[in-house]
Structure formats: C-alpha cells, structure tokens
C-alpha cells in the first residue's frame, strides 16, 4: 500500500518536512475500507434464491477497456446490493478478411486482417427490477469508450397480474410506438396505405363504376385527372 501523506504546516514556523517517526506512524495508518477495496478484487453479494434477473453482455475489441469496465460494473452492483455473477469470459468472436495488397490485379500477394471481439457476461440474480434499472442506467451514464453493452432483463410478477400487465402494455405501446415505428423488417402492414389508396378517386371509379382505368393525379408527372366524358354530362 502506498501512503505518502504530508500534512500542511499548521502554523508558519513549522514549514519543515515531518520527522521520520511521524512519517512512519502515518504510513502505518490504514486507508479507509472503501478506498482500500479499490485495490482488491471486487466484492460480491451472495444470492438468496439464484433467480436470474439481468444478463449484461459487454463487448469490446480491447481486453483492457473491457476488464476495467466489467470490474466497475461488478463494484457498482455490490454497492447497489445486487448479487452479481461473473464476469464470465464468453468465447471471443474472430472475423477475418483477406484482401489483395494492390488496388488492381496481382491476386497472388494478399494481406489478412482480423477483428477480435472479446466478451464478458455479468449476471444479476435476485435483484429488484428498479435497482437493476438503476444499475444499468448508471453503467450507461458512465459508459467507457470502446465498450458496448447489451442487457437482457427479466422481471418477475406476482400471480394474477394479467390485468395490470395489459394496462402496462397499452401504456408502453403508446410510449414506444413513435420511437420504434421503423424498427424491424416490414412489421408495419400496408393496411393504412391500402385503405387510403382504395378510397382514392381513381380506385373508387375503377371499382364502383364503369369508367376506364385512370392514371392517378401526381405531382411532377404533368398528367391531369380528367372526369370521364359520360360523367360530365350528368353533373
């Protein structure tokens, strides 16, 4: 332990450095426990039931950043009273690319590149959902450069929670509808657009009358919608 503590001179006369006895006695003083814990492996709480609540996966291309951040996450979990398991080293992902060295032909001389993604998994057990969220929020706030995070969160409900869940789902859908509108692949059906198209003038004419099929009126196409002749007479 490194403790070099020099107290500031109390009065103007005692500006000399401290004598050896004082220094050695100061050296013997221990650091506060919380500070000293930073030099040791992170402490962890023991889970009572062992029900997994949150799986946090950390990914990075550099082991040093990843280790540091995983350590921070473990300490944060300890001080939030969350029993955490890990960090479990998951298999690293190696991607390789081989490209010719030259910009044109000369395929015989190539070069290999690779990207290794290292991963760590931290599992939280028996945590209250609110605390887990606080933990995740803390980690998100203090993100470390070059470290990505991905969390799977499970929440456990009481029995007979169906009604409550329905209400919550409704509220959540309202909140996220705008945010996740474009997410996923063709999840949004074309219903609205279809309805709009079928109610449009050319379609209505095509479906409910004997009018010829008509090109829709569009900007920039220079084609105007004309009322069929036999309808002009009726009007």
């Amino acid at each position: 332990m490194v403790t070099m503590i020099y107290s500031a001179p109390l009065d103007a006369k005692s500006h000399l450095p401290l004598d050896k006895a004082t220094i050695s006695s100061l050296d013997e003083l221990r650091l506060p426990r919380a500070v000293y814990a930073a030099y040791l492996r992170p402490l962890r709480r023991a889970p009572q039931y062992g029900v997994p609540v949150c799986d946090l996966q950390l990914r990075s291309y550099s082991v040093r950043n990843l280790e540091l951040f995983a350590d921070t996450a473990m300490r944060a979990a300890y001080y939030l009273n969350l029993p955490a398991k890990g960090p479990v080293p998951l298999p690293r992902i190696t991607e390789r690319w081989t490209v010719p060295r030259a910009n044109f032909i000369f395929k015989k001389s190539q070069e290999n590149f690779e990207r290794r993604t290292v991963r760590r998994l931290i599992q939280i057990q028996d945590g209250e959902p609110e605390v887990v969220r606080a933990w995740l929020g803390f980690l998100e706030k203090h993100q470390y450069h070059g470290v990505g995070m991905k969390a799977n969160v499970w929440e456990w409900e009481e029995l007979g929670c169906g009604k409550k869940m329905e209400e919550e789902a409704k509220a959540a859908a309202e909140e996220t509808n705008g945010l996740w509108e474009g997410f996923g692949r063709r999840k949004l059906g074309p219903e609205e657009k279809v309805r709009e198209l079928l109610n449009s003038e050319p379609f209505r004419r095509a479906m409910h009358g004997d009018a010829p099929m008509i090109l829709p009126e569009k900007e920039g196409r220079g084609q105007e919608y004309k009322t069929p002749l036999h309808e002009v007479g009726r009007g």
Partner: peptide, 14 residues
C-alpha cells in the same frame, strides 16, 4: 375486385 387490382398494377408500373 379485378378492376381494383388492375388499377393497382397500373399505378405500380407508373
């Protein structure tokens, strides 16, 4: 209806 579908084809090609 067949006409609506034909109309849609027309619009799509346009």
């Amino acid at each position: 209806s067949q006409r609506a579908r034909a109309q849609a084809q027309l619009q799509l090609t346009q």
